[in-house]
Design a protein around this nucleic acid. Structure first.
Lengths: 161, 161
DNA sequence: CAATAACCAACTATTTTGGTCAACTATTAA
DNA sequence: TTAATAGTTGACCAAAATAGTTGGTTATTG
């Protein structure tokens, strides 16, 4: 089992998407700026999120990504699963062939741990996260620090005019 | 955070040690045979376990390793920590500087998850594991399949005689 | 003294992570 | 219709971590 930046990035990006929903699709470039995640890496992650039908994409100018369901319908475990970071703590993938065909001494311990983690993460939805005060605070800070590409283009339009 | 064979091997080996305690020190060669873990890799893991005072060693013939405390005094979290597999799910090591000096959008989520996992694992002692029926079953199978080096030497002594 | 088994250091193969780069396709605004 | 935007795909890459191996040394016991 592993939980590295891959899974964390995916959850963070999905939460960013949830927070900035409502004003049309959100571009990966905006998420990249706000969350400090490389654009090309985000592309890879969102390809997987799309294949798992957690998001849908809109191409062309003004395009970007949108959540494919309501925020209450998406939980953290699903997002992590989607980017292939299994929350499985066993070495055998629950098959029980950890030691030449049979189960190893600690097989059931890792099974128990796996369901513990999965239960915890699957009970937390994007909607839950959005309501948290610490999340709202950080989101406000990020919005202040990074204008979206939309606002950006408005400003350069003014400057040009 | 990561939980790979390293942490699993460490817990498995410690449990093997607990199960075969009472008949003097247990050699790494025996653990290697029974649990199917490479001897030299075990050496590296036990160096760390010893530095963390979870085991003590006895050198020379008939030597090996022993638990440094009672089985109830050693929990799974301690063993995993000892081999440097942190059960920390945050990217910043709880410092809160995940995004250029400030906390990232999902910092508190990973903190919560970390303590969830740590609480779970620290409540399970080696003594608890030994009582489990699935552990006892697997241990019996392993003892049947692999004679200890002690029993082995008894047999070869008979053959020689 | 010889066998045993812990101890130690250095090296290696493989996998995973976290990316980059280039080429391509679909959409829309001018 | 054409340029710009933005997603899509695949190949590639460097660094780090994992899971070892090799080749010793030191301490202990029979």
């Amino acid at each position: 089992m592993r939980l590295t930046t891959k899974g964390r990035y995916a959850v963070t990006a999905m939460l960013d998407l949830a927070i900035h929903a409502g004003k049309g699709p959100v571009s990966l470039a905006d998420i990249s700026e706000r969350q400090g995640i490389s654009l090309s890496y985000l592309e890879q992650l969102f390809a997987k999120l799309r294949r798992n039908e957690l998001v849908r994409s809109v191409r062309g100018p003004g395009g970007g990504y949108q959540l494919n369901r309501e925020q209450q319908g998406i939980n953290v475990a699903q997002v992590i699963d989607a980017v292939n970071e299994s929350v499985d703590a066993t070495g055998c993938g629950h098959t029980g062939s950890c030691q030449d065909g049979s189960i190893c001494l600690t097989h059931h311990l890792w099974c128990d741990l796996s369901s513990q983690i999965h239960d915890f993460l699957s009970q937390i939805t994007l909607a839950d996260l959005m309501e948290r005060s610490d999340v709202r605070t950080v989101a406000k800070r990020q919005d202040r620090e990074h204008l979206s590409s939309f606002e950006d283009s408005l400003i350069s339009a003014k400057v040009t005019a």
